[in-house]
Design a protein around this nucleic acid. Sequence first.
DNA 1: ACTTACCACATGGTTTGTAA
DNA 2: TTACAAACCATGTGGTAAGT
Length: 282
Amino acid sequence: MSGRRLHVQASRLRAQLDTRALAVLDTLYRFRLLTTAQVQRLYLVSGVPGSRIRRTQYLMKRLQTLALVVRLSRVIGGVRAGSSGFVYGLSALGQAVLDVSGPAGGRRRRVWETTPYFQDHMLMVAELYVGLREAERQGQAMLLTFTSEPGCWRHFTGSGGELVVLKPDAYVRVGFQAVERRVFIEVDLATESLPTIVRKSARYVAYWRSGVEQQRAGVFPQVVWLVPDQHRLQNIQRALGSLAVEASGLFEVALIDAGPRLLMAPPELEEKPDHSSSRPPP
DNA sequence: ACTTACCACATGGTTTGTAA
DNA sequence: TTACAAACCATGTGGTAAGT
């Protein structure tokens, strides 16, 4: 399909979508993949409980019929019992619809033909976002920013003068009454080796030492590793122990299920050593 | 066009039953 | 006791129908 034609079709489609449908597409753009259940938890929270999911299915089916989303694999007979729902990604047309109103930005993304691991990882990042939105709905904290890849990437110059790219899974700002928490998120599914974890973490330390983020944003975010189970949590904590002592306070490791609760809870004010404003000696 | 209710279907893990 | 099979269960989805 040629660009011009696509654009015309996208404009026409956009006109007949309501704000909720557009929001779904936009969120799909940000996270690349979403499950039906996640869409429901984000955008169909009112009404009779039993019918919410049904309405979500109706909505997603409509978007699929319009070729705005693509439906990926479905695992039936899931982990314990029952099925997992469908997983949706944005189609090229869906992306074009977002482009209509301006810079949806980056290059086209392809969500299908991806490995199960990447799918799981993307869905976990999305899951964290959904969890944070739900926590926000009930709690006092506000989710000010949730930037996923690649928007949350950071570029800086390493000690050898080389260009380094830091690739967190997400950058999160949570607002409380007077204070604000900023966090880089690393979602870990226990698929990477501990040396890889350490290497990634060292890159955060290098970025911290560069002072770029502090200059840009005033503070350096905490780096939170979210892991699937207790065993992995201990392993990563131990691995992080090998990093420079003064950098250890940068990191926190937590269970991924506890992620939203942790991030939306007001920070205790006494706190550990403050890395945010101070630059370490060269 | 959208919402809601109801029921059947698909399917793998879990449990229970049975034979070796 | 072990090994395998049948029955059961959980869960999201789809169709349909009726209501708004």
